[in-house]
């Protein structure tokens, strides 16, 4: 695929979730503009891409459970809860920042 068919976005992990991604807190990734079916790529697509292609840890169900982001993980698109942006159906834009935060309970 030619490079112009891709764009970059920043993915961040926080609250301990980075431990599932080899300790990486921030990565810039290049994603295709369209998915296999010719649709614009969404956050939902990104979640599965991260789970299948980026995550090396075998504990996949600590990130994606039953096809959805695991309960207790907040997804923030450009610093706003993804529920304000259409959740998994949000179409990614160049230079978007997608932050995954796992909820903490200690005190």
């Amino acid at each position: 695929m030619a490079s112009e068919d891709k764009f970059n976005l920043v993915v961040e992990f926080s609250g301990g979730l980075e431990l599932l991604f080899s300790g990486r807190r921030k990565l810039t990734i290049s994603v295709p503009i369209k998915d296999n079916e010719g649709q614009a790529v969404t956050v939902g697509w990104l979640v599965h891409y991260l789970c299948n292609e980026v995550m090396e840890d075998s504990r996949k169900n600590m990130f994606v459970l039953d096809g959805h982001v695991c309960p207790g993980i907040l997804v923030l698109i450009n610093d706003a809860d993804w529920e304000l942006e259409g959740e998994a159906s949000y179409a990614l834009q160049p230079n978007d920042n997608v932050l995954f935060v796992s909820t903490l309970h200690g005190g």
């Binding site: 301990g16 600590m62 309960p71 207790g72 993980i73 909820t103 309970h105």
Partner: peptide, 11 residues
């Protein structure tokens, strides 16, 4: 947080 996290993931 409508659903609690799985108990074995709470640290």
């Amino acid at each position: 947080f409508p659903k609690p996290p799985p108990a074995d993931t709470v640290v």
